[in-house]
Design a protein around this nucleic acid. Structure first.
Lengths: 201, 201
DNA sequence: ATAATAAGTGTAAAATTAACACTTATTATT
DNA sequence: AATAATAAGTGTTAATTTTACACTTATTAT
């Protein structure tokens, strides 16, 4: 998770999610894209509504209703600007610092939502590299489920959906034997769901 | 779906969802409860976030960001005020009039969200009467899925979850034989999900 | 008394999921 | 050059779940 050191008072210097005010002539989605582009350099990123944070006392400075969105960024994104500056840092979600206001609650909500979604929607592919190995995909779902999944059964199930394309390339970085790289084919996923078959892992 | 004839300009007299401005000292959830109480007389109703409607030109009068919520109201709710006035009317969702602004989009989004949710969450019980028959519950899911479900298999599946309690009463209004009434027991549902079993129909 | 209707029940076949052990490609070590 | 170590890759059988399907029952209307 990408967190930011707040540059302005109040709470200057504390860790925080990033946000901005919606400008008069921009849509809320455009504001999300703008903030993402400013903070990471990325465009065309998967984003999703998280929720509305509207308790009157949540920000001691002013009455602010926050519209929560989360984005999923491939850690290998080519154009990802150097985000490990003194202003921003990537954190393991299991080891997060204290955040300002209700941002810890937002993070908890986002992780819960992501966990629920990943079961029934192909959000995992937004986080993995464009090409990934089946062991990587399996480990992603193992972390979502919080339990291990049988290697053979997982492989059988995901391949039977015919939504992945095998490449000739092997990733040699994580094992001696190496593992073949696969690609998620959105068109095949769409075709599957249109046939009425529910994606579920 | 409960729709309202707008009482003020612009769009006076046209059908609309109901809303209100969030007051300075109330939370967004409190605003939802207030609007619901004012329009139906009901409190303690299931509500859920629908989404954020924030396009800059969506309301020609002013820049308004609408925070969408939907509520599920049991049609037999005891304290439901007479909502069939000249200002408000219940509509079949398959036969809705044209609504102001982007409200038809909101309705479409709400129905889609409800359909998806109903598969994995026990929202159906928020809409059915407190006591309902298994044929009623089955017809609810048939309308969600858009296809018929086998009577015997449906009964087996839902009863195997042990989240329903059978009463001694029979509903004689829908058939000659009558059908036993059941009650959803939230505690049993919670126990089931805590055992890691996913609700899914 | 009989007909009509929808509720209620059980069983067998088919499909899916879960459990499990050996082989293979590659790198590191000797 | 041979051997050990490692994680990837594969196939089969048992268990479970889902699907398909037909008759009996309680009640009301005729």
């Amino acid at each position: 998770m990408l967190l930011f050191k707040r540059r302005i008072e109040p709470f200057k210097g504390q860790w925080s999610l990033i946000g901005s005010f919606v400008q008069p002539q921009e849509s809320t989605e455009a504001a999300v894209r703008r903030v993402l582009a400013e903070s990471t350099g990325l465009t065309d990123i998967f984003t999703d509504e998280l929720g509305i944070y509207g308790a009157p006392g949540r920000d001691p400075g002013a009455r602010v209703i926050s519209l929560g969105y989360y984005a999923l960024i491939r850690i290998d994104s080519e154009n990802l600007r150097d985000t490990a500056t003194h202003d921003a840092r990537w954190f393991d979600t299991k080891d997060l610092p204290e955040l300002i206001l209700d941002h810890n609650q937002m993070v908890a909500d986002a992780l819960n939502k992501l966990r629920r979604r990943a079961r029934y929607r192909p959000v995992g592919f937004e986080l993995l590299p464009e090409k990934f190995t089946l062991p990587q995909l399996r480990r992603f779902y193992e972390s979502i489920y919080g339990r291990s999944l049988d290697r053979r059964n997982f492989r059988k199930k995901i391949l039977s959906m015919s939504i992945l394309e095998k490449t000739e390339e092997k990733d040699m970085s994580e094992s001696r034997k190496g593992a073949f790289l696969y690609r998620f084919i959105k068109e095949k996923y769409d075709a599957m769901t249109e046939r009425g078959i529910n994606f579920e892992i």
